[in-house]
Amino acid sequence: MSESTASSPDELKEGAAGFTQDWSSDKQTFHAPWGKAMMWFFLLSDTFIFSCFLIAYMKVRITTTVPWPNPSEVFALEAFGYPVPLLLIAIMTFILITSSGTMAMAVNYGYRKNRKVVVWLMTITALLGLSFLGMQAFEWSKLISEGIRPWGNPFGASQFGSCFFMITGFHGLHVTGGVIYLLVIIMRVRRGDYDRSGNYEQVEIVGLYWHFVDLVWVFIFAFFYLW
């Protein structure tokens, strides 16, 4: 196309033209769609953000001389007249795993160009995400009513509240963003955008993001609720 305008392909240009030339030369490392590669790099950076939160949590939990509140008791729920430890958290975990499963199948049906099934599976995924958020709102209001604050709580080390609200809040923000992202892609699938372009890779990219949200929850579940 533009080869006729270039004087010589080997000649190195200076300044902005040289910058463009260096980055546009015909070299490619990742043989994947750029959208997918970029989503992976975003998720890599997000991994570091969540790791910083979890490491900060580890640090304050090690350094505090006051006993850490027992998550097994703090997050227990009354069911059938007995306190069941981590009941709500367990349900939230299963909901998120299930939503990951439906998302994975949506990606699969996308590459089979089965538009109807993709819309259905992605809608289920978004609804499960919303129910997760509802349970998180319930959990937050329950803990707040019990007197847990970012600066203190009646159960033990005062850093418990700040770690809890920061980590689960940032994860909840990701779920919220993920639901909105899902809804946008669902709308485009319904509209037939990807049937016209013949390429459903956008569904796989939103899937990567959604699985990542599930992945982060695996670590939060292990380190914050079980440890």
Binding site: F94, I97, S100, A104, M105, V107, N108, N199
Partner: peptide, 21 residues
């Protein structure tokens, strides 16, 4: 062509994640 694998793989992984959780 993208990623194409049998649906059964995802269902098995789903079950496995449930069990591990």
């Amino acid at each position: 062509e993208g990623q194409q694998h049998p649906i059964a793989i995802y269902l098995w992984i789903w079950v496995l994640l449930f069990v591990l959780s």
